[in-house]
């Protein structure tokens, strides 16, 4: 187990280093970062001045070294638009993104898993068929369009929920639910098929034959054994939600990292983009690490592979 933990830690550190390199190279993709950062009407002098100012006139490895030293201290340069530290601005917007991601994750888990289990317990019933139908539809709906439809129905027609901003639970419920739809449906479907498979196993028959109550058979034996693959998917979902609610944030004018990035792209404010990609990618690496360690704890066979 200790060996496995060390191995996963080293892998995570190497991954983070690669994340650094890619974030650094982002601006160099077209060959000239200065042209990317400036407007099309910039003069030749502007470009040269900017090149000197940002250190883009130095060799690439020198630039990378400087970038790395700064980045390790959380310094991704200053926002061109706001004049503040880029990482500081991203961190300022981070709680809103976490709030939405965790909210959407909670919706997905708290609704998806019980509904998936119930559908499996009542396989073939009208409820099961309804559940499958609804989840299939939910996986096909683009979440940002659903968000717009929510606004149209709850804000414009009924006028009971605010259509943008952040603050109260009324602000929170539509964006979080819209962001969760795909994940909710996927978790429910996976839970259902996983549970169906477990219910067919011999140890369930044995448990029933022993005379255990149906409640204990389902809740203890079936639920526990079907949960391991679900944990993996849940970990992935949380990571995806952290970096993937961009469009929902834009639709609801939610003051999170995603909207900050979209605005920064419009302003060609790339230090913010770099800082945001770095922060979310590192967060994702750490979540994956945590999931793997939890997984190894739940199923000790993993660490011996």
């Amino acid at each position: 187990m200790a060996g496995y933990v060390v191995k996963r830690l080293i892998q995570a550190i190497v991954l983070l280093k690669c994340v650094m390199i890619i974030v650094f190279l982002l601006l160099h993709m077209t060959g000239d970062p200065v042209v990317v950062m400036l407007d099309t009407d910039a003069t030749h002098e502007d470009i040269e001045y900017m090149r000197k100012l940002m250190g883009f006139d130095k060799p690439l490895h020198v630039q990378y070294w400087r970038f790395l030293q700064n980045a390790l201290q959380g310094n991704f340069g200053e926002s061109i638009e706001h004049g503040e530290s880029a990482m500081g601005l991203v961190l300022e917007h981070f709680p809103a993104t976490i709030e939405m991601a965790v909210g959407a994750f909670a919706f997905a888990v708290l609704i998806g898993i019980p509904f998936g289990c119930l559908a499996a317990f009542k396989e073939g019933s009208a409820y099961d068929k309804g559940c499958v139908g609804v989840t299939v539809l939910m996986q096909a709906v683009p979440d940002f369009w659903l968000a717009i439809m929510f606004i149209m129905f709850f804000s414009v027609i009924l006028g009971i929920l605010p259509s943008f901003g952040r603050g109260s639970w009324q602000h929170f419920i539509m964006p979080a639910f819209a962001a969760s739809t795909y994940h909710l449906a996927r978790l429910a479907r996976l839970m259902r098929s996983q549970m169906l498979e477990v219910l067919r196993q011999d140890y369930i028959t044995t448990a029933r034959a022993k005379g255990l109550s149906e409640k204990i058979v389902l809740m203890v034996h079936a639920l526990k054994n079907s949960s391991i693959p679900i944990v993996t998917v849940m970990g992935l979902d949380l990571g995806i939600l952290l970096g993937g609610t961009v469009i929902i944030e834009v639709v609801f004018a939610w003051p999170g990292v995603g909207r900050l990035v979209v605005d920064s792209i419009a302003n060609r404010d790339f230090p913010i983009v770099q800082a945001a990609v770095f922060l979310l990618a590192s967060g994702f690496v750490l979540i994956n690490l945590a999931v793997d360690l939890v997984y190894a704890y739940l199923d000790p066979r993993i660490s011996y592979e």
Partner: peptide
């Protein structure tokens, strides 16, 4: 490990 949508943007 990359936040795909952000990187794509």
């Amino acid at each position: 490990s990359f936040p795909f949508i952000l990187l794509a943007l």
